[in-house]
């Protein structure tokens, strides 16, 4: 028994079908719970009620980056071991990542307006996320424009690899280019003095919720891709017959 067994589409369909209800239930409970709990937290003395946006902004930003990493790993598995499910999972994850990036950017812009007095600032973090969005869009566009599925998987895999290097490079280039307004708000800084428990626990729940939401969505979307491929294969067979 090894994890490579899940590379078999039939096995993947069976297992993912069994996991899916739990993932969906967990995603709904945690996301709705975390976001609603976050919405009900008391106002911050400095930021007022805008602090509630953190329960959407931070989980979305976290997932935006992690989904790209997951795509990179899945692409590598496809390029090295030629498991079709892996390539399809990377394809399925890309639109989710793009939406997460969009949420992080949109909530950030709306939050920045009253806090910094501007919708947009060419701050390293904001700029990096904009660049990340461009990489997601390019990746999705490439998948959409190559007809042969295996070629598309190969090309997007190579693009994901090169893109990862350049996304990271851009991150540091942008840091060099402009120092910003955005607080270095990683959780390690926040725990303790920066963020009190009334904000921290709903944030954890919300982050778990977004993670489960991603798992559920990527399972659904991968299943869609597998079905589409099987359909195409059956149609091709029928044509020949």
């Amino acid at each position: 028994m090894s994890i490579w067994e899940y590379a078999n589409p039939v096995k993947f369909m069976r297992t993912s079908g069994a996991i899916l209800p739990f993932a969906v239930a967990g995603a709904v409970v945690c996301t709705v719970g975390g976001v609603v709990w976050g919405f009900l937290t008391p106002d911050d003395f400095r930021q007022g009620s805008t602090v509630k946006i953190v329960f959407l902004h931070v989980p979305a930003a976290m997932m935006a980056i992690n989904i790209w990493v997951m795509m990179l790993v899945a692409s590598l598995i496809w390029l090295i071991r030629r498991h079709h499910v892996s390539a399809l999972a990377a394809k399925a994850a890309a639109p989710i990542g793009a939406v997460m990036t969009l949420i992080a950017l949109a909530t950030g812009a709306i939050w920045g307006q009253p806090m910094w007095g501007t919708w947009w600032e060419w701050d390293p973090r904001l700029t990096s996320f904009l660049i990340l969005l461009l990489f997601y869009l390019g990746y999705i566009a490439l998948w959409a424009s190559v007809e042969d599925v295996d070629s598309a998987a190969d090309l997007t895999g190579v693009l994901c690899l090169v893109g990862s290097v350049f996304a990271l490079l851009s991150r540091y280039a942008v840091l060099f280019w402009n120092q910003g307004l955005h607080q270095g708000a990683s959780l390690s800084v926040q725990s303790g003095e920066r963020m009190s428990a009334i904000y921290r626990y709903p944030l954890y729940l919300s982050m778990l919720g977004f993670l489960l939401l991603f798992v559920a969505l990527v399972l659904i979307r991968t299943r869609t891709e597998i079905r589409r491929r099987r359909l195409a294969a059956l149609q091709a067979r029928e044509m020949r017959a």
């Binding site: 660049i131 990489f135 893109g163 996304a167």
Partner: peptide, 8 residues
Amino acid sequence: LLVLPLYI
């Protein structure tokens, strides 16, 4: 679309 982000 693919190349320009790499130029950043």
